[in-house]
Design a binder for these strands. Structure first.
Lengths: 328, 328
DNA sequence: ACCAGGCGTGTTATCGCTAACATCGAGTAC
DNA sequence: GTACTCGATGTTAGCGATAACACGCCTGGT
């Protein structure tokens, strides 16, 4: 920096001012400094800046260590959004979403003097942990508990589930069964809520929830059971991988999809269009979630406190070939 | 830090020594300092340390912005490995793997004073870019060009493809067709090489490569063509999603898998066991790749130059139900 | 003509840490 | 007993940036 200052014939402070877009610099000086920067290939040292300002251009993300499609997509989308805004993203994966590991990960990020932290906290335990550590640093929760009072961005699970269920009912089914995700995930709860509400709105019977986790394996097991029940003609699966397992179970039992059974999934994984048959599903807008998250975070960075805004991003129904009217 | 020093009745330098595990500190003093640290809840400022040492406990990863299963798994595995070794990981996603964006991402990481950089560079253009920027900072390429002389860790694509092809031949097939990934990926090239070499070793005819990208969509298109060719009885797909598309094309044309056509995939995505039928595939050991990568990187950080070691991690064959002997 | 006030710029202090050297006492060799 | 070594600790000087204040100079109002 001193070299740049010397070459441009100014003080290092003026160089700093140019770098930070300070208004009170003469246009001519600004150009001279920029030229010197370019000539020397100078790049500012972020560590030094972070030291003196107490903030780095770094955003910490705490996420579960998984390759589940939803969280992974969200993370990728967020990294893209952050990069666009000039922030680097430091990812702290965590194996279990409990209090200890989360607050640990948050503290590690804080040591790095990150500008803000995003926690992808889809379970209750994760949310509790967030409540503890939130003090004194901009923090946004994604996929968390709407009851809690931290800034929060989520996919509107209930709306998606409502749309999926309604779509099946409109095709003529008498009721819709639901294979759900793990019961400690808010995603699961929201999807159950939307499904139930669609059935109740239509004045229909609500069958028992068929519990599963997110895996194709558990979908397969659930599917084996449902395939044996002739009254089951429509299933809303809590995600596409569950739907895949169900499809296989149906196929093994000779129940044709969509002729005998209609299925709707959730997530719109890239290969969903190539399931047998192509899967009708709900597509969350991860890009929008990432954008909202970044906005909320940067607003906190800029303004200090901004209350606890919540954003709920509605997903879209993608119609393919796994839904048909029931056979009478 | 000064507070800690005062409370422990030592100088701040001694605190620093305790923090960094310097040997020449009396045991009693060390304990006193540690107690003071615990009492005050002191946490060292990483930015300050990075400033003075010129290195942070941060590893930069440059990866393509995709949710492809392979790269995403690799990234997750690497983050886990790095966390275990006490490093944070800063991810710089890049939309296209060209010279500019890669060297940009690398420079951004360098500004952060990362300890080292990992580039996931599965294409030729990415590798060229890495060649340019590698100077002066520990750097390991993953999934890159074996011809190039940077430290490199890869999945042994050729060995996996060889195993897949040989497995099909051992089932009795006369030859094996290959639906390949994009031709600018080293993964694709390696898999083609292994497939070809297995056929040549067996003294068999090598059919033309059927080109595709990694998507189920392109697998479906390739499958539509192959389904019309009765002489095709065995297919090695360059990844599981391609295999999924092929499965669907076969199913639509009434060609049963594995009765009429046998298929082997690559990647072992979690849902591969729930395809119809469950897919025989090749499982890369991402965890091992991540571990080797970190080792190579830390060796560079410690020793300065270490030449250009290369590690090749062999994958495993996972047998399921998509392979059977051909119908005579 | 004089002074207030903004603008452009330079000077100095400081962020929290580690490196390098200084110091001091105790053991060891002769 | 003197000198030398070494281990434990303290002191001082930066790392490379920004913040705060100081300082001219020009402008405009009276």
């Amino acid at each position: 920096m001193t070299d740049v200052a010397r070459l441009a014939g100014v003080s290092h402070q003026t160089v700093s001012r140019v770098l930070n877009g300070h208004p009170n610099v003469r246009e001519q000086t600004r150009l001279r400094v920029r030229a010197a920067i370019a000539e020397l290939g100078y790049r500012p040292n972020k560590a030094a800046r972070a030291l003196v300002t107490g903030r780095s251009q770094l955003i910490g993300v705490v996420a579960q260590n998984s390759t589940l499609y939803g969280p992974a997509s969200l993370l990728a989308a967020f990294e893209a959004a952050a990069a666009e805004a000039g922030f680097a993203v430091s990812v702290g994966r965590v194996n279990v979403l409990d209090r200890n590991s989360i607050s640990d990960a948050v503290e590690r990020h804080r040591d790095q003097r990150v500008a803000g932290i995003v926690v992808i906290a889809p379970t209750a335990s994760a949310n509790d942990a967030v409540g503890d550590v939130s003090a004194g640093i901009p923090l946004v929760t994604v996929d968390g508990d709407p009851e809690r009072s931290t800034p929060l961005v989520t996919v509107d699970q209930a709306a998606g589930a409502f749309a999926a269920t309604t779509h099946l009912l409109e095709a003529g089914h008498r009721t819709v069964w639901h294979v759900s995700g793990p019961s400690d995930w808010f995603d699961s709860l929201g999807r159950i809520r939307g499904w139930r509400s669609a059935l109740e709105t239509a004045g229909l019977e609500v069958p028992p929830v068929v519990p599963a986790d997110w895996s194709a394996a558990s979908g397969y097991r659930a599917g084996q059971m449902l395939a044996r029940m002739p009254e089951v003609t429509a299933i809303f699966a809590a995600n596409d991988h569950l739907a895949l397992g169900i499809l296989r179970a149906m196929s093994e039992r000779g129940r044709r999809v969509p002729h005998d059974v209609s299925i709707v999934g959730f997530d719109d994984v890239p290969e969903a269009a190539y399931f047998i048959p192509p899967l009708t599903t709900i597509r969350p807008d991860f890009h929008a979630v990432a954008k909202e998250t970044l906005e909320l975070l940067l607003a906190q960075v800029a303004d200090g406190e901004v209350g606890a805004p919540q954003r709920n991003v509605p997903p879209a129904l993608v119609k393919r070939d796994s839904v048909a009217p029931p056979v009478q």
